[in-house]
Amino acid sequence: MRLTHVGGPTLLIEVGGWRLLTDPTFDPPGRRYAFGWGTSSVKTAGPAVPAAEIGRVDAVLLTHDHHGDNLDDAGRALLASAGTVVTTRSGARRLAGSGAVDPGRVVGLAAGSTTVLDAPGRAAIEVTATPCRHGPPLSRAIVGDVVGFALGGGAALWITGDTVLHRELLDVAGRLRVDVAVPHLGGVRFPVTGPVRYSMTARDAVRLCEVLRPRAVVPVHYEGWSHFAQGRRAAEEQFARAPRELRDALRWLDPGVPTDPEVS
């Protein structure tokens, strides 16, 4: 397995001949993006790999389509050339309805449902949507649908998606057998909503990984946007106080550099 961190939540996954891309964000920095209900963010860093240099994309794993820090304009344009787009059910309807993706190439999943990526000459990959709560209790009507993705029948890799730590997420972590965990961090906050968080803090990630016990932890979604309230330092500090096996599992990917996260 090789992972390339493009920036923000965007990760290129190369495994078994497959090339999978998560949450495509390729716009240049400097623009402010509105997320609704008075919230917004400025993109502060561009992609480590331009969209034109990503190469073949067999499938896009899109945790949600309606926030610019998970799908920006250049990322949306890339969807047209990707093989399959897997996302939320509501997102699949929006993407197909807008013409961004041919309806036959987009798959909508609810948490707990599964699809299979298959192609001649490659082992099939089972993709299961996992639950996300992208904010405080009862916020779904405001923040919209979000899912994470577990890859492989035993979840060889788990992308948490944008979520706070909540009971359903911990329950899933207790059932999965994960080699590589990709938590979306950042401890997202907005001035208009005060102390409310919309993604995991570093402390949340440690708690989740204590249940999950993966062989490698690869944080994403912690830099490149002004609404990310916690960066790499916060995660390093929290994991430094974690059990030894989690400290040893933490992997920081150099932006743009393909890396095998299971090789220390």
Rank of each mutant, 00 (worst) to 15 (best):
residue 114 T to A: 07
residue 124 A to Q: 07
residue 160 T to Y: 09
residue 130 T to E: 06
residue 93 R to T: 12
residue 244 R to L: 15
residue 112 G to P: 03
residue 150 A to Y: 09
residue 147 V to S: 05
residue 215 R to T: 15
residue 142 I to P: 05
residue 229 A to Q: 06
residue 103 P to K: 01
residue 189 R to F: 14
residue 105 R to P: 00
residue 232 R to A: 15
residue 155 A to E: 03
residue 42 V to E: 15
residue 187 G to F: 00
residue 187 G to L: 07
residue 3 L to V: 08
residue 7 G to L: 08
residue 111 A to V: 07
residue 64 H to A: 15
residue 120 P to N: 04
residue 5 H to R: 12
residue 52 A to L: 12
residue 83 G to A: 04
residue 99 G to T: 11
residue 80 A to I: 10
residue 197 R to G: 04
residue 253 L to I: 08
residue 33 Y to F: 12
residue 126 E to C: 14
residue 65 D to G: 15
residue 176 L to M: 08
residue 155 A to P: 03
residue 152 G to I: 05
residue 168 E to M: 11
residue 125 I to Y: 02
residue 5 H to Q: 13
residue 263 V to D: 15
residue 139 S to L: 08
residue 155 A to R: 01
residue 256 G to L: 00
residue 185 L to D: 05
residue 171 D to V: 12
residue 70 N to V: 14
residue 127 V to S: 02
residue 18 W to D: 05
residue 96 A to Q: 07
residue 109 L to R: 02
residue 83 G to Y: 11
residue 131 P to S: 11
residue 198 Y to H: 13
residue 182 V to S: 06
residue 149 F to T: 05
residue 109 L to H: 03
residue 32 R to D: 15
residue 227 H to S: 15
residue 143 V to L: 07
residue 176 L to W: 07
residue 48 A to D: 03
residue 144 G to E: 00
residue 73 D to S: 15
residue 14 E to L: 11
residue 91 G to A: 07
residue 44 T to S: 14
residue 167 R to F: 12
residue 38 G to S: 10
residue 250 L to Q: 03
residue 75 G to R: 05
residue 140 R to Q: 13
residue 13 I to W: 11
residue 220 V to G: 04
residue 259 T to I: 03
residue 106 V to N: 05
residue 261 P to Y: 06
residue 53 E to L: 15
residue 216 A to W: 01
residue 68 G to C: 06
residue 20 L to D: 06
residue 35 F to S: 13
residue 240 A to M: 10
residue 239 F to E: 04
residue 250 L to D: 00
residue 237 E to L: 13
residue 197 R to C: 10
residue 176 L to Y: 08
residue 14 E to Q: 09
residue 38 G to M: 09
residue 175 R to F: 11
residue 20 L to H: 03
residue 192 V to H: 10
residue 118 D to C: 13
residue 51 A to I: 09
residue 178 V to P: 08
residue 247 R to Y: 06
residue 187 G to H: 04
residue 163 T to K: 04
residue 177 R to C: 12
residue 161 G to V: 01
residue 196 V to M: 12
residue 202 A to V: 01
residue 126 E to G: 13
residue 169 L to N: 02
residue 63 T to Q: 13
residue 165 L to R: 11
residue 173 A to G: 10
residue 253 L to E: 02
residue 167 R to D: 14
residue 161 G to Q: 03
residue 14 E to Y: 04
residue 230 Q to E: 15
